[in-house]
Amino acid sequence: MSIVLDVREVWKAYGNLEVLKGVTFDVGEKEVKVVFGPSGSGKSTLLRCINMLNPPDKGEIYLKGKSLMEEGVDLNSMRSRIGMVFQQFNLFSHLKALENVTIGPQKVLGMEKEDAINRAHIALNQVHMMEWIDHYPAQLSGGQQQRIGIARALAMDPDVILFDEPTSALDPELIGEVLQVMLDIAQAGTTMIVVTHEMGFARAVASEMFFMDEGVIVESGTPNHFFTTPENERVKQFLHRLEVLYGGQNTEE
C-alpha cells in the first residue's frame, strides 16, 4: 500500500506556546485515520500544519513523496491536492451550493465550466445534495452546509481530505446525515484524516486512531485496541468521559 501523506516530527509554537511537539504518523491510500483528544491538545493545529495554512516550525511533511516544506514548492497547487472540511463549514456565503463546489475545479484546477459542473454533480450526488444546488449557504441547515463542504472537497479529487470536527457544530439530529456521508465516502476509498469524537464513526471505518494530548500522540492503535485495552491512564479517562457525555458508542449504526 502506497503512502499518501507522511508527517515527520512536526513542531509548531504560537509565540511561547508549544502546540505541537514532534508529531509523526503516516496515512496510506484509502486509509482513514481518526485523531481525538482533549480541547487544546493541538488537533486543529496539526491539520492546519498539514495543508500549510499554518506552516510548521520544524519537521517534514510529504504528500505522495513530495515535500511541502521545501523552498519554492508551489503551496497553492499542493493545497489543491489536500481537501479540508471545517468545523464551521466555511462555505463561501456569496455563492450558491453548486458554485461553492465548482469554484475550486474551475479557478484552481483551471477546468472548463461544463467539466467543473459535471464533476460537482458527481460530488453533490455522493453527499445527497442535488436538490439543493441553487440555494445559498444561509438557506441551508448546518448538516446540509457541511455536506456541501464535503462535496467541495471531493470535487477537487484530492489525494487526502482533512476533517476538523465536522459534526461538532451541528445540532444532534443533524449529525447523523453528515456521518453517513463520511462513512459512504470512506467506504468508497477516500483517504481521510478525521478529527472527531464520534467514536461510532471511528469504530466503523478507522484504520488507525491517534489519541493526542499536549501536542504529542500519546497512544495509537486500532479502534478495537482503544475500546478494549487502552493503556494510557489519560486515554482511559478521556474515553470514559466521552461515554458519559455521549452515552457510549451508539452515535452511529
Partner: peptide
Amino acid sequence: QVTAAYALGM
C-alpha cells in the same frame, strides 16, 4: 472565508 479559499488551493 479566506481560510477556506486557501485550503482549496487559491
